[in-house]
Computed example of a mutant assay.
Amino acid sequence: MVLIGVSHWHTLFFLDPSCGFPDVTIVGVSDPTLARAETAAAQARCRSFTDYREMCATPRPDSAFALARHCDMANLARFLIDQRIPVARRNSAPLTPPKQPTSPTGPPSRVYSRR
């Protein structure tokens, strides 16, 4: 498994428990800020990277926890999906209540949207 974006404050919810499971091996952590990646890598006893794409090339992870700025999450998710790497990510866009119908005579919408 790899962790991407380890300077994100949610990292502790993934890194700490993952390090405690005997059947989980973290093979890499990445963050654009190398010092943050190195700190997490020391805890996980793995390599650190500043580029998640390089990290995912070798060794090829079997899964990823992805944390990123909201503006970067779409590209990160697209990369992981294109590479066929299963991903758990912090939901960067919560669901909102159903939208009102577009027509006053139409039925209520069952569509949820992202903010």
Score class of each variant (00 low, 15 high):
77 A>G: 01
104 P>T: 10
64 A>M: 03
75 N>D: 15
70 H>A: 13
41 A>W: 13
51 D>E: 11
82 D>E: 15
75 N>I: 00
54 E>S: 11
3 L>D: 03
109 S>N: 11
13 F>S: 14
21 F>C: 04
77 A>K: 02
94 P>F: 08
95 L>A: 14
65 F>V: 04
35 A>T: 14
101 P>Q: 00
37 A>P: 05
29 V>W: 12
5 G>A: 03
65 F>W: 03
61 P>I: 05
37 A>G: 14
63 S>K: 06
104 P>I: 06
31 D>H: 04
77 A>Q: 04
49 F>A: 12
31 D>M: 00
61 P>Q: 07
50 T>K: 02
47 R>L: 06
96 T>Q: 14
63 S>E: 01
111 V>R: 15
58 T>C: 01
37 A>D: 03
115 R>Q: 12
17 P>T: 07
51 D>A: 04
11 T>M: 12
16 D>G: 02
24 V>A: 08
87 V>I: 15
33 T>P: 01
45 R>D: 13
84 R>Y: 10
62 D>I: 10
96 T>C: 06
66 A>G: 06
40 A>W: 11
2 V>H: 08
96 T>W: 07
3 L>S: 02
101 P>W: 02
6 V>R: 05
71 C>E: 10
32 P>D: 03
90 R>K: 13
66 A>Q: 04
102 T>S: 15
55 M>H: 09
105 T>Y: 06
45 R>L: 11
73 M>A: 11
16 D>E: 14
97 P>T: 05
88 A>T: 10
81 I>K: 08
50 T>F: 06
58 T>K: 05
21 F>Q: 15
102 T>D: 11
58 T>W: 01
41 A>V: 09
53 R>F: 02
45 R>S: 15
73 M>W: 04
58 T>F: 01
35 A>L: 07
109 S>L: 01
34 L>N: 02
27 V>N: 04
59 P>V: 00
44 A>V: 13
104 P>V: 05
70 H>I: 10
77 A>W: 03
59 P>N: 03
3 L>M: 02
62 D>G: 05
52 Y>S: 05
57 A>D: 10
33 T>I: 11
102 T>N: 14
114 R>P: 08
100 Q>A: 15
69 R>P: 00
34 L>P: 04
112 Y>T: 15
49 F>D: 06
14 F>Q: 12
44 A>G: 13
69 R>Q: 12
79 F>D: 01
79 F>W: 14
99 K>R: 15
20 G>Y: 10
12 L>R: 09
52 Y>E: 05
23 D>E: 12
106 G>T: 00
75 N>E: 15
87 V>C: 07
75 N>G: 14
9 W>Q: 12
26 I>L: 05
60 R>F: 11
92 S>G: 15
54 E>T: 14
34 L>Y: 11
16 D>Y: 15
5 G>D: 02
17 P>V: 03
96 T>I: 13
67 L>Q: 00
56 C>N: 10
68 A>N: 03
15 L>T: 06
113 S>L: 08
96 T>H: 06
82 D>I: 08
8 H>Y: 07
50 T>E: 11
83 Q>A: 15
105 T>I: 04
34 L>A: 13
92 S>Y: 11
34 L>D: 09
30 S>M: 09
113 S>D: 09
58 T>A: 06
90 R>D: 10
7 S>K: 10
39 T>V: 13
75 N>H: 08
32 P>Y: 03
114 R>I: 11
24 V>S: 04
111 V>W: 09
44 A>F: 07
61 P>M: 01
31 D>W: 00
14 F>M: 06
